[in-house]
Structures are given as structure tokens and as C-alpha cells.
């Protein structure tokens, strides 16, 4: 009986602390909105935050039967990467790296997603690769790529989740 009470108490405490400490685990990052960009040939127009999370976590790996998702993250120091991981996966960069190490170990993937070192590279690759998806500062979006609505909203609109 004592054991059961101890377990119940531990679980309740940890569960409560999850809600309280969830935000403090990663420093809250905010600032300029980041745009989710895809190739103009991609028929996708919008994504839910949950779908975006599955893409970022490598759980959704194809847009359709013929078009694979080509996830192109930004480099580790970038604001876009930090904000994206926090808003979609509630992860730090280190946790994200560890997550992908686990995926490789389980045989689900052969390597981590490519990390693009600059804004220009992200824009160029997304405009080149049909299944490409990347994340850039919303102010840097240029013609020739498509900005995806997240939860029905574009960057700059009220309630846009990635800002």
C-alpha cells in the first residue's frame, strides 16, 4: 500500500511539474516570424502545426507517393532553427540532435536532415528541389518560392504560430 502511494505521489508530482516546467526547460525565443517555404511545384498550401512537427521530426517523409519530403533545417546557430524547434517540437537543439541519433540507431533514417548554412542557400535549394521544405526569416522571402500557411495563417498575420 505504501509503495502504491509513493508511486502515485511521484507520478502526480512529475505530471504537475511537466506543465509548470515545460516552458522553463527551453528559453522562450521570440522575434521575427519565420516562414515555412516549399517549392512552387509543391501542391501544398497549408499545414497544421502538428503536421509540421511530424515533418520536422522525420515522421512524415513524403508529400505524396512520388514526392519525398526533403527537410532542410537551418544551421544550429540560426534563429530560425531555434524558434522552429521550440514552437513545433518543444525541443532544444541538443535534444533535436539526440532525437535524430535515436532515429538513426533504430534504423528509421540513415542520417540527420541537412543543415543549410545561410539564407541564400535555403532559398536556392527550396526553389530547386521539388519536395524541399525549409525555414527562413519571413522578411527574406523572395519570389520563386511558396510560403505555406501554418494553421491557416501566413507570417505577419495575427495568431501566426511561428513568431
Amino acid at each position: 500500500m505504501v509503495n502504491r502511494r509513493c508511486w502515485a505521489l511521484i507520478f502526480v508530482l512529475l505530471s504537475v511539474s511537466e506543465g509548470l516546467a515545460g516552458a522553463s526547460e527551453t528559453d522562450v525565443v521570440s522575434g521575427a516570424a519565420i516562414a515555412v517555404i516549399v517549392n512552387t511545384d509543391n501542391p501544398l498550401d497549408q499545414l497544421s502545426l502538428a503536421d509540421l512537427q511530424r515533418i520536422v521530426l522525420g515522421e512524415r517523409r513524403s508529400w505524396s507517393a512520388r514526392i519525398p519530403v526533403v527537410l532542410m533545417m537551418r544551421n544550429e546557430e540560426s534563429h530560425e532553427r531555434t524558434l522552429l524547434l521550440q514552437k513545433t517540437c518543444h525541443m532544444t537543439g541538443a535534444e533535436y540532435h539526440q532525437y535524430w541519433t535515436g532515429k538513426i540507431f533504430r534504423g528509421e533514417v540513415t542520417s540527420e536532415p541537412v543543415s543549410l548554412p545561410s539564407l541564400g542557400t535555403a532559398l536556392n535549394f527550396v526553389s530547386t528541389i521539388k519536395g524541399g521544405i525549409s525555414f527562413v526569416d519571413a522578411a527574406s522571402v523572395r519570389p520563386g518560392i511558396k510560403v505555406v500557411r501554418i494553421e491557416g495563417r501566413l507570417p505577419g498575420e495575427q495568431g501566426y504560430p511561428l513568431q
Binding site: R66, I67, P68, V109, S111, P113, G120, T121, F125
Partner: peptide, 28 residues
């Protein structure tokens, strides 16, 4: 200047880490 210097680095990075299954001939 940054773009000019980053371009080869970016190409190298992609060469090393892009997942083959992610880039189909039809895709790119």
C-alpha cells in the same frame, strides 16, 4: 561576399549529409 564563400561550403555540406532517399530524380 558571404553568399559567394558559403556556396561551396553549402554544396559540400549537402553532398555529405543530404539523405539520398530525400532527393529523387524526379524531385531534383
Amino acid at each position: 561576399k558571404a553568399a559567394k564563400t558559403e556556396q561551396p561550403a553549402a554544396e559540400n555540406a549537402v553532398t555529405k549529409t543530404v539523405q539520398p532517399q530525400d532527393v529523387s530524380p524526379a524531385a531534383s
